[in-house]
Design a protein around this nucleic acid. Sequence first.
DNA 1: GGAATAGTGTCTCTAAGACATTATTTG
DNA 2: CAAATAATGTCTTAGAGACACTATTCC
Lengths: 234, 234
Amino acid sequence: MVLTVRDHELCALLVKRGEAPFKGYWALPGGFVRPDEGLAEAASRELAEETGLRAQTAPGQVLAGQNPFGAHLEQLATYGHPQRDPRMRVVSVAYLVLAPDLPSPRAGGDASSARWAPVSELFGEDRNDGELLAFDHGQILADGVERARSKIEYSSLATAFCPPEFTVGELRRVYEAVWGVVLDPRNFHRKVTGTPGFLLPSGGTTTRQGGRPAQLFKAGGATVLNPPMLRPEA
Amino acid sequence: MVLTVRDHELCALLVKRGEAPFKGYWALPGGFVRPDEGLAEAASRELAEETGLRAQTAPGQVLAGQNPFGAHLEQLATYGHPQRDPRMRVVSVAYLVLAPDLPSPRAGGDASSARWAPVSELFGEDRNDGELLAFDHGQILADGVERARSKIEYSSLATAFCPPEFTVGELRRVYEAVWGVVLDPRNFHRKVTGTPGFLLPSGGTTTRQGGRPAQLFKAGGATVLNPPMLRPEA
DNA sequence: GGAATAGTGTCTCTAAGACATTATTTG
DNA sequence: CAAATAATGTCTTAGAGACACTATTCC
């Protein structure tokens, strides 16, 4: 499953199923592992086929990786309930991709059958239509969103949602979108710039948000944040 | 894979392979999923068959669960490198079990082919013999140990290593064994007794450690610790 | 008594949260 | 000019770490 932040909202990539079962339902993109490829390799290949995005694990890393584009890919969980597919026993190894805002989804050339769905529309308070995803993909989506929400607390993974260069304000809006909260800009700025290895000044400035020009940063090498960025309580 | 704490050390359950490939090597216990059972169900069944321990996920919980015995079972990760088994393509869904100290391992009736191995002997500084596990089980073990080490930071999962009733000192020794550090008893006591929902006084006291009698506790309902129990840095 | 463990209290310092204030752009 | 965003600074308070000290058992 692919998550991104668009228009200040956390969004998941969905594709419309063209065949039974669950024909016409929205589902998470996926496919089958080839006999001679690894699991992460297969996830990366399917992702490229369906969205054109390149994300792959670093060699030797079993569970997670970061690619040159900044997109992040990691194994989420494996789902194997005997009746999760009405046709036959299917075991799915779900992978989670965190990507910067992408131009537009294109599902194997068929643009009408793919979309970015705000996760707040799929579950939570804003859910107005009770739309259900195919198979157990609602559960997989919920697990992936929770993984993303908790992982940006104690890692620098939120930068995977940002373009190669970004401002502190843009990074803050990522946190706000993923957590669905409002953060104090001043305390946030002090926190992220004060955490060694989180942000690396790239020298430039930008004014694309209006207002005073903001300093541009790249993701620093740090992967673990200590102390963590605490998610505000309910 | 099953982890426990014995003699102030974090230990993993290993079984000796009686057949090729890797005949005579130590390996993590495991087995095959039956056509009509779930993944966690299969892990729970194999565990009971090989050790007599009962651990199962609570119904509806996909990723983790807690059973009446206090043993905890959760999905760890899935390993599917094409050449991880020299015979054929095998995809393994690893489950992690955290259990209190068990009487003695018995592997399907054959006691000589199962043992509790301190993880410090399998990797890390203390590793004196360079013993290797079968297949990629060394990697799986490392991933499981890291999961346990990080998870007791922000959850009450350390109680899964304890008997149903335990003292603050026993819980502290669990943290010390899993992290391989020494903690201040006074600060630890203040921290765990001050975290609401972590510990529930059971009324009794015990003197099994010598010294002044200690109050006995049960695991409280809390699963998430906020603020977390911080692991001391290197 | 001495050794061991349990439990409470006190001090310091880091860092989070709640603000004020100044700086620099666009409209 | 006003409005928006960026960046820095100040105050308060919660909580972690480093201790001293008392309590209660077994030997």
